[in-house]
């Protein structure tokens, strides 16, 4: 079989699952939205051509000194203007438009400070995706190292690490995260690090199991007979063969990390203002629940959609690599 053949096969199987493909499309769209958040929601126009030959400006891309502090959305600035689809920044408040329902002007309504909800939602995408990716990347790295050591060396190393894994699995993780964030100060970085260092036992278990199986295989014995060093056998030969179940678990892991992050933001322990996050918007909404349904429904649905998409991807991936799990 030529190189990459295995993953091509997995992709062929994955493509048959329409729900999983849908999940992948949603995540791709969200990533695009997160990367271009400032281009999608901004109070400065892409291009401004001042009337009567006054010059051409690109306020969104370049900070023109002569336009500083001017709100080009006002009608007094005539001329040709092209604004982003959401012509508001996520932090600009307008006390004349507090808790306005969805309308043509504010497609998702405004919040309790008159900030445009759509702009905040778009910028909040960054937090959810970033925290999900980085926290899971941290714990996958830790889990792979620890699991690989246990599975490769076996014996007393495996014994010690297995006991350690069992121990950490008993940790009241959510409570521990709450304590750390509340006492040491909440921030996006601490959320990622704390989830990262408490989440690894599941991955370590999977990698250990895979390595215990792979260790007995002929190709590993052959590599060892050729005189390869341990770390080379682990990294080059065994790890690629153990990655598939790790990635499945990672996909579910991103989903649950996003849920944890939004729960923490909901409790006021996540990302701190003025940076918007979905959980934070939802948290603010609980005070206005009787009359501002959009503040509850929209961010909650966004969290739900993201989590579902990651879960669908994980499940599709699982079925693609393991024919037994197919229904």
């Amino acid at each position: 079989m030529k190189r990459g053949g295995y993953w091509r096969g997995v992709w062929t199987e994955f493509r048959k699952n329409r729900l999983a493909l849908g999940g992948l499309a949603v995540i791709a769209a969200l990533i695009a939205l997160a990367l271009s958040a400032s281009l999608v929601a901004n109070n400065r126009p892409y291009i401004y051509v001042a009337p009567d030959g006054g010059g051409v400006y690109f306020p969104l891309f370049y900070d023109h000194p002569e336009l500083r502090g001017l709100d080009l959305r006002k009608d007094e600035f005539r001329g040709f203007k092209v604004f982003p689809p959401i012509p508001f920044s996520y932090s600009e408040y307008n006390l004349d438009e507090i808790l306005v329902g969805p309308s043509l002007r504010h497609i998702m309504g405004t919040d309790e400070q008159g900030r445009d909800l759509a702009a905040r939602m778009v910028h909040g995408t960054r937090v959810s995706l970033l925290v999900g990716f980085i926290a899971v990347a941290i714990y996958i790295s830790i889990g792979i190292v620890i699991g690989a050591l246990a599975g490769y060396y076996g014996g007393w190393v495996d014994m010690l690490i297995s006991r350690l894994i069992e121990m950490v699995m008993c940790f009241p993780t959510f409570f521990l995260i709450l304590t750390i964030l509340a006492l040491w100060g909440p921030s996006m970085v601490s959320v990622m690090v704390v989830i990262g260092i408490t989440g690894w036992p599941g991955i370590a278990r999977i990698v250990r199991g895979e390595f215990l199986k792979l260790r007995e295989m002929d190709f590993v014995t052959a590599t060892r007979a050729l005189g390869s060093r341990d770390w080379r056998i682990i990294l080059r030969h065994m790890l690629p063969n153990a990655m598939a179940p790790v990635l499945v678990s990672a996909s579910f892991g991103v989903a649950s990390t996003i849920l944890i992050e939004s729960s923490l933001s909901f409790l006021g322990l996540g990302v701190q203002p003025p940076t918007p996050s979905w959980g934070q918007i939802l948290s603010n909404s609980s005070q206005y629940i009787d009359f501002a349904w959009w503040m509850t429904v929209i961010p909650g649905f966004a969290i739900f959609l993201t989590i579902t998409s990651y879960n669908l991807i994980g499940e599709g991936f699982q079925e693609a690599i393991d024919p037994k799990s197919r229904k």
Binding site: L19, L259, S263, F266, S285, I289, F304
Partner: peptide, 20 residues
């Protein structure tokens, strides 16, 4: 599929919606 969707619904969101 329905159970899968239920599983992905965040608790605190549903709690707020139920209250609402």
């Amino acid at each position: 599929l329905v159970l899968f969707i239920l599983y992905s619904l965040p608790h605190f969101w549903i709690a707020l919606l139920l209250l609402m």
